[in-house]
Amino acid sequence: MTRAPVNKIIPLSLVDGPGNRTSIFLQGCNISCAYCHNPETQAVCNHCGICVSGCPSGALTIVGSRVKWDPEICKLCDQCIKVCPTFASPRVRNMSPEEVFQEIQKNIPFIRGITVSGGECTLYPNFLKELFAIANENGLTCLIDSNGTTDFSRFPELMQLCNGVMLDVKAWDEQIYKKLTVGATNSIVKKNLQYLADCNKLEELRIVCLPGEVDAEAVISGIAQTIGEKACSVRLKLIKFRHYGVKGRLQNTPSPDDAYMQKLLQLAVGFGFEKAVIV
């Protein structure tokens, strides 16, 4: 059976797509952005056990050679994440699509659909496919929130079941992208942008804006040139960088000012992004 590491399930989310949705966060990411605001979802726990003895509520134990987490007594104090050499949360459940859906089902009829996020959820394409099939049968729409480094065209069945992708376009210039993500390239992201626009699966585009780190102006014009007239119908979120949750070299970096964000918004509107917003 297909399983995926689930970091958390949020029953009510106002910020992960249209309408009210249940969001599922999978653990593990293939890139490590300097501005990531939930770096504890990047690495997958390697069961080294360093976190176990320091857990104040005794929710972590070693069973066999694996770290076991007891959600019933966990106080969510984050001590385990603080001491982990890779900031990997041990508070992860390995779940089957059926098990995840059992939790989602409790939220019907209050939700319109689900959004699977991460980490990077496309690292688990078969899990997504099976989960979406069940969700579809139950009348829920399914969105993917992705960094776009997985080539979506390789998964036509998944794309059939998925209502849309919320795509992070982090940087346009290859070198800037590499620096931000610590070594990744963005050629697949650009390919996906075209592919998703062509098959009408582009639900939302996101740019985290931080001058000096992100070439937001180039991203806006690059997207516009790639997707053409679709720019007027797709929602573009210009996300103001905030340091909350960020670990590493950007953890004390201030947010860009409102004037800069407004300038980007004007630029986006000028390129035809009628649904551009600052968040």
Partner: peptide, 19 residues
């Protein structure tokens, strides 16, 4: 933040009223 997504709150209303 609810102001950014009144559609989400409407979904909750629809669910509650259907029950």
């Amino acid at each position: 933040t609810g102001r950014n997504n009144p559609g989400a709150i409407l979904d909750i209303v629809k669910g509650a009223f259907s029950l």
